[in-house]
Design a protein around this nucleic acid. Sequence first.
DNA 1: GTTTACAGTTCTCCTAATGTTCTATACTCT
DNA 2: AGAGTATAGAACATTAGGAGAACTGTAAAC
Lengths: 198, 198
Amino acid sequence: MLTPTQDRVLTFIRRYLKRRGYAPSLIEIAEGIGISSKGTAHRHVQALAEADAIRLIAGRKRGIELAETAQMSKLSLPLLGIIAAGQPIEAIPGQDRLDLADYLLGDNRYALQVKGDSMIGIGILDGDLVIIERCDTAEDNAIVVALIDDEEATLKRLRRLKSGRIKLIAENPDIPPMIYAAKRVRIQGVLVSQLRRY
Amino acid sequence: MLTPTQDRVLTFIRRYLKRRGYAPSLIEIAEGIGISSKGTAHRHVQALAEADAIRLIAGRKRGIELAETAQMSKLSLPLLGIIAAGQPIEAIPGQDRLDLADYLLGDNRYALQVKGDSMIGIGILDGDLVIIERCDTAEDNAIVVALIDDEEATLKRLRRLKSGRIKLIAENPDIPPMIYAAKRVRIQGVLVSQLRRY
DNA sequence: GTTTACAGTTCTCCTAATGTTCTATACTCT
DNA sequence: AGAGTATAGAACATTAGGAGAACTGTAAAC
């Protein structure tokens, strides 16, 4: 992997970057590890870039970025693994960060707070937040925000019947499904994710 | 990434803005960093805008805003209101944006994927992600990641018994609660939020 | 409404700092 | 010895930063 000298260079760059906010020049690196040739420093830096420990911005002064930093989007958390009753936490192979933006953010998305227990069967509880992506069509069986008669908005599972009518299903055995003529139902968005705070 | 000089300019702008409440002019910036040319100051400011460190309001004197303030919008979604079966979407008064960072991000937090149905009673399903905040104590009745005998990690509701022992409760009627001596149980973190993608 | 001071914009010219490439040499292993 | 690594230092190319002039636009004073 890295040679001892390369490791010292990398450590120096890390510290410098943390303290000053910008990368060291080659001369500073050379001084930092106790050599006098910037040409040599240049070779170490090239080697580090080759090993993907850092990224270089070509033809830019102090154009060094740590590979680690590039990995971490601002909206991410470490993803430790899978937890299950009766077993130690098990790492998820090949994935160690969770990009929350991916789950939540998007151009046409908005949040709604859920009131009531009509979707309790799929784990959407009273007070939960749901993220909705605006759109006017949806696949069969998707969970949608539907507007009925331009009056009532509701979060339900959508099913198209052969008759052409539309069935809106609450995920709650106590609430019977409702069937409407297609004209009466307008889709406002599709459920993309869900969020709860404890 | 910022150059050393750009960094100094940014620092100066920050301080100026904090002290005076409005942004510095180009001449003031030039003086502030010890140069005499406002043309040069202008170039630095342009570079900072390019790097998204600040935002410029075109054709306005002292029209500089720090990006940090505007940055928050990247972590938020419009919060339209409350949706309930049988009613139109109702706006939530005094709140129109949802700050996701608030829900999810934090210094000592990490994510776990849930396996199994042991917490189905409170709407945590197989495959959901939970956000855990690292800590070694928890309030009674909190949902925690507990390590039993340093071997098995599990997500359960915690309850302390008068006997001093600890009861770990699965939110699933099919899974009976377990009772352990306090020594055998170590808390690794507390559930702070939960996330699901559809 | 005109004037005026202030501020932003766009240039060009210049210099020092820095990155890049090269050759020659030395050290340390097996 | 030969491969791999490290160093020094020279020569050259490019970039970042600076100075200052000339111009344009803004806002407040008159």
